[in-house]
Amino acid sequence: MALEVKKLVGGYSQIPVLKNVSFQVEPGELVGLIGLNGAGKSTTINHVIGLLRPFSGEITLNGVNIQKNPVEYKKQIAYVPETPILYDELTLREHIELTINAYSLDHEEAWKNANHLLKTFRLDNKLDWFPANFSKGMKQKVMICCALMTNAKLLIVDEPFYGLDPLAVHDLLELIEEKKKAGTAVLMSTHVLDTAQRYCDRFVLLANGKVRAHGTLDELRQKADRPDESLDDIYLSLARNDQNE
């Protein structure tokens, strides 16, 4: 078991946003985190990456607890944020170097990985530019390169598709597929449901800070009592039910 979130209660201030959230992500598995705006997706991710401190509950990654051993825990994760976050003062090359330093990666091998990724996203000729001046999509590609070049056991991807061109979306999904084959666990939050339906192995459906449903597409269909329907429809029906409650 890679990531295990157990009975997580948490949020930004005193008031809990997440109420008793539990789910797992297995190695080699892509789990989609799905929910309306304000359902608690980003809050969950902020807890998983250690930005927020749980009020109660436990988060472990391959048996390492985030509170008890933050450095060991953080060695195993890589993160692609929803909006690109870059250092204004560093060039693209230096972002890669910094990532190598921060994760203590093998210099040569890491650069080989990085070059492959940069080439895929057509950034290999912009190594000496400041990515802070790139377009939104290109910045996002830099974030993806920096995250995917690590050997992280858990990859956390927050709304990765906004601003990416269709070719880049395709490339990203392929790269995630590769990572999965290598045994990496992936947690991805998204609103793009048809893509999620095609690529995710399992889903965690959040609503009002609670796990509304989780499981494979078939399991979700059963739960919503809507066989043969798409994730989109199931999601809408579950969301509407919630609103009526």
């Binding site: 060695k75 993160y79 250092y87």
Partner: peptide, 14 residues
Amino acid sequence: QYRANVFTHIYPIA
């Protein structure tokens, strides 16, 4: 200076 940048919190550095 870099407090607002998430990555400084995510890197596995003491």
